[in-house]
């Protein structure tokens, strides 16, 4: 899909308005949230990807990442399955699917969840779901607990384990600095096959459906990311079940924050009830002791008066 600069800037304006209007929803919450209105995303059409790694090269360049171990033109790296690393915010993997003459390729990067697990996990709010759709990370507050890496269902965030004093979490930002300036994300711009489509998330869903309608039998009838983990800004369509191109189909539709909201909701209840119950137990045991003491005293008294009488 082609996007004119003018149209794009229009969207940016809309996204900005949305961000301004919906500021309270920036952080992860436990209400149903359908994404910031007019926020952006990318649609990855797995059927179009040829595994040229142009996106990887562009990503490396625009983000100023470290040089790769092997050059981006070396397609032999596709022989093994890779994941994101501190040197690569995105990787393309090759999948040989039974019954298909040629292999399929799928690109992996941050999916920019509508309600991100990383943001929900972060105890310093270093992650933010911005109005543009990008999930950003602020290294200036990050403590480095790596709970975001534990939380991410897509295994995306990576960590600079070899930095002694200034380790950061590294992950795709949806090229937040670029899209804020009206540019396309590096990978989208670099893709020669138009396997990546940048646009408003609600439009992308319509485009995906349109392609499915236009080419009957070509796609699996599912947009990966439309509902997964409550929905993501980065979505996928494919000609084979998504598990065959390295994506998990067992994640469910529950947004990550809901997984812990129940446990967190118990906190004020425990904090409110426990002192009452514990002091109640204390009062009971105290009273028992008092009664015991009183009985002991009265027995002693009785014994004493008995002795007096005897005398």
């Amino acid at each position: 899909m082609s996007v004119s600069r003018r149209k794009f800037l229009g969207w940016m304006g809309a996204a900005g308005m949305g961000a301004a209007a919906g500021r309270s929803a920036l952080a992860a919450g436990n209400k149903h949230f359908e994404g910031h209105p007019g926020s952006f995303g990318v649609l990855h059409d797995v059927t179009r990807c040829v595994g040229c790694r142009s996106c990887e090269a562009a990503c490396n360049e625009v983000n100023g990442l470290q040089a790769p171990d092997r050059p981006f033109t070396d397609l032999n790296v596709l022989a093994e399955k890779r994941r994101t690393t501190v040197k690569a915010y995105t990787v393309v993997n090759k999948y040989d699917v039974p019954g298909k003459a040629s292999p399929l390729f799928a690109k992996t990067q941050c999916n920019h969840c509508l309600e991100p697990a990383c943001a929900s996990a972060c105890f310093v709010r270093a992650f933010q779901k911005t109005g543009t759709g990008a999930v950003t990370y602020d290294h200036s507050v990050c403590v480095g607990c790596r709970y975001c890496l534990i939380a991410c269902p897509f295994d995306i965030p990576t960590y600079e384990y070899n930095e002694a004093l200034t380790p950061r979490v590294m992950k795709c930002t949806l090229c937040y600095p670029r899209i804020s300036k009206g540019q396309l994300p590096g990978c989208v711009e670099a893709c020669p096959m138009e396997a990546l489509t940048f646009g408003k998330r609600e439009d992308l869903i319509k485009i995906a459906r349109e392609r499915m309608r236009e080419y009957p039998g070509r796609y699996v009838d599912h947009i990966y990311g439309e509902t997964e983990m409550g929905g993501t800004s980065w979505m996928y369509i494919s000609s084979v079940p998504f598990s065959q191109v390295g994506m998990r189909e067992d994640l469910g539709v529950t947004p990550a924050p809901q997984l812990t909201s129940g446990a967190l909701a118990a906190v004020p209840i425990v904090a409110g009830l426990w002192p009452v119950l514990l002091m109640g137990i204390y009062a009971i045991s105290k009273r028992k002791e008092t009664i015991f003491q009183q009985e002991l005293d009265s027995i002693r008294e009785a014994a004493q008066s008995q002795r007096k009488e005897d005398v």
């Binding site: 943001a119 972060c122 105890f123 709970y147």
Partner: peptide, 16 residues
Amino acid sequence: RLPYPFIMQQGTTSVL
């Protein structure tokens, strides 16, 4: 930075 969650920004959605 261990005190950051308390003195800088409170990530109250986090169990951590």
